[in-house]
Amino acid sequence: MPSGHIVVDGLSKVFPSQAGDITALDGIDISIDSQEFVSIVGPSGCGKSTLLRCIGGLIPPTDGEIRIGGDLVTEPDPRIGYVFQKAVLLPWRTVEDNVMLPFEIGGKPTDADRAAALDVLELVGLADYRRHRPGELSGGMQQRVSVARALVTNPSILLMDEPFGALDAQTRDTMNVELLRIWDESNTTIVFVTHDIGEAVFLSDRVLVMSARPGRIHDVIGVDIERPRSFEKVEGDETFWSLRQRIREELH
């Protein structure tokens, strides 16, 4: 089974709390194909981030199971790259050393690893900034460094948790276009959590719409818009607007 294939089967997640247990996720079933781009949208508190963290092996499910490439997920999987809402760069390291972090944690970095770091920095357009510290970069550039760090180990799956949520609209548009290019060049499966419906439709093959309390998959919507996509093309496309409208209505 291709290692970018994700199956979520009967997943439930309950957080115990003094005021009574909170069911964050309830009976989630999803199957995501290798190299697919899937977005998850839903109201805040619907558990979309929790779902992503379960897939990433950061928290254990209460019930049900997750498989990646057929293997049961019990801990963070080396085939997964994670991009968080914040860039989470280490301010005391240069851009390049931040991207090298996954290799350093895995052992002693090789020359091939260093070459890979340069390649991904090239891919996100920041090779010229590799000697800078994160504090000298704009928010958009920082987030691109964190994308590079997630990609450097050549993962089969990229999990992205509202990665561009904190960026201004213009930077976010640029990042979306770049993300599609990177996805195209890297053959990864991407699971992308966002609260921006337009972003979800623009990027994805399928959009999972979640409902809150308990978090359930409310609907799965296929986005039948031709690739490669650009803003000019997509915004002139009837399907884009009707899907946006449909998802918006489902969220209310």
């Binding site: 990433g56 963070p76 968080f84 989470v88 944690i105 895995g106």
Partner: peptide, 8 residues
Amino acid sequence: ELFKALRA
């Protein structure tokens, strides 16, 4: 959490 995700 980043370090956890990187299996540190």
